[in-house]
Amino acid sequence: MGAFLLRRLATAIPTLLLIATLAFMLLHLTPGGPFDSDKVLVPQIQHAIEARYHLDEPLWRQYLRYLGELAHGDFGPSFQYRNTSVNELIAQGLPVDAAIGGVAMLIAILCGGGAGLVAATRPGGWRDRLPMGMAMLGISIPVFVTAPLLILVFAMRLHWLPSGDWVAGSWRHLLLPALALALPHTAYIARIVRAAAIEALAQPYIRTAIAKGLPTHVIVLRHALRPTLVPLVSFLGPALAGVLTGSIVVEQVFGLPGIGRLFVTGALNRDYTVVTGITVLYGALIIGFNLLVDLCYAWLDPRVRARA
């Protein structure tokens, strides 16, 4: 296990380096700079600003400086928010996304997983076709359609929940964005779990369990659940990384101060450090969660453990 972890870390660092390099070069080589604006600055002031952020140095020097800071876990200062570091901006945005994403994934796993298991017990019956038809709808309707519709119905017409804004710790403000984010994930999970559970239920040891006369729920929950979790876990890894770094659409529609919006405004304003920092963070989360996924495989499937 130790050797496995070491090997994975050894590939993770070059990958992160590549991501950071790509993001850095892409931003710096494209036309436009963070301090280009419609109003013309006095040349001395322009010069002073550029010198403060080291933008007057040659590119390779800026690059090496950035990598040096990155190696110390420092994402550098933001260009658009004066006197604020990217680390501070991420620290403000991350809890918002983590709360909404966490609740969304919880809803998605419980509802999607349950629907998938129920569907798999009787493939072809109405208990299969109804949830799977809804899942098909769920993966076909994008979040930027469901989110405004949820606001229209639950906030504007019924006045049950607020339509946006963010109040830390208020579940009423959290519910609609989490629901909007949960819908497509619920649908994906339902489909994955159904396919995996059908496969698992066809295994010989399940036939033995049926022959022993065990009730369906015991067979499904005790014998078929574990192999069913394997493909679900491999879906959850990247999905969690995506949800944690914020859904740009959900943040935009509900007006939430999360990382996704920070990223888009950063990209529009050529805020180099914000965009590169969030990109590296996302890459690191993906790599980290994929590593967790592989560790879960070993826990879920004894055959993987034997091979490792």
């Binding site: 070059p14 990958t15 993001a23 892409l26 436009g32 990209a267 969030i278 996302y282 890459g283 993906i286």
Partner: peptide, 19 residues
């Protein structure tokens, strides 16, 4: 495998903004 780890939505957004 390496390309899989690269966050594409951010990259496409950056490309769109840049060009």
């Amino acid at each position: 495998d390496v390309l899989y780890a690269i966050p594409f939505i951010p990259f496409v957004i950056v490309l769109e903004v840049a060009f």
